[in-house]
Design a protein around this nucleic acid. Structure first.
Lengths: 131, 131
DNA sequence: ATAAGTAGTATACTTTTGTATAGTGAATTA
DNA sequence: TAATTCACTATACAAAAGTATACTACTTAT
């Protein structure tokens, strides 16, 4: 697909996730951007637990708090905002009384399931390689 | 493949990457372990640049330092040790004089290329979804 | 009127992660 | 003999990420 990583090595003046000297022309900057986007979406202690909970369907703040062990409202709020900014999550406000707020994944958010599966596959294979 | 993420939700007393209440029996702990393994291997500022450089072939400490822009010897050393402990990298010592030391990926390390490709795919699709 | 639930925010703090800068020791070339 | 290269290590510091604890504003149930 991108067959050799040659393609994404070196990207001097980008923030520097993938970079190596002397290969600028062979390294499509878009690949590097795409990779850093992906890293930003999944990295941190709480992103995957939140996404995993959301993969089960729309859910309210309070239920996320209860489902995700030991997360604080501060972190949940912060992470949801970040996921919303990155178009992974949508915050829906239903103007009933009392107001109802639900979080749900976007199409991009749902498509993370495939990536997560690939990560699990790699991890399982790695464990079988090593032990 | 793991079709529904149900399978990996809730894992109370594991470190807590993926967890949700009331689904213990449907959540194979191995999947959670595999996923956290994967996250540990790729997360941090320098892991992917190092792995990307190593995907081009065996390489020496000094050349990694030169190839990866702005990394310090301290971080390179630290990350290589971690990658070695996790069986992603092998440190080979050739007892010539002067001694020659080369780092190379293990089979598990090389197989990260597929994961990286999947991450790039997700990122590219996400960008096309959003803009 | 009081307590409890929802959806958070505010402030202060600790831990983790990464940076800056200098130095070591062995060998090697000038 | 002195400077340079290689492969790092040591110490101190700064920045980012995460935690603890309390609080707010609104609504509803008792």
């Amino acid at each position: 697909m991108y067959s050799e990583l040659d393609k994404l090595i070196k990207m001097s003046d980008f923030k520097g996730i993938i970079q190596q000297a002397g290969a600028t022309e062979r390294c499509p900057q878009n690949y590097v951007l795409a990779l850093t986007d992906t890293m930003n979406v999944i990295s941190g202690k709480w992103k995957l637990p939140i996404i995993a909970s959301l993969l089960r369907g729309k859910i309210r703040f309070k239920d996320l708090l209860d489902n995700i062990e030991k997360i604080t409202p501060r972190m949940l709020s912060k992470e949801l905002k970040e996921l919303e900014i990155n178009s992974i999550v949508v915050r829906k406000v239903y103007n009933q009384t009392p107001v109802l707020i639900e979080y749900q994944l976007t199409e991009s958010g749902r498509s993370l399931l495939n990536l997560i599966d690939t990560m699990i596959d790699w991890g399982l294979t790695h464990r079988s390689n090593v032990w």
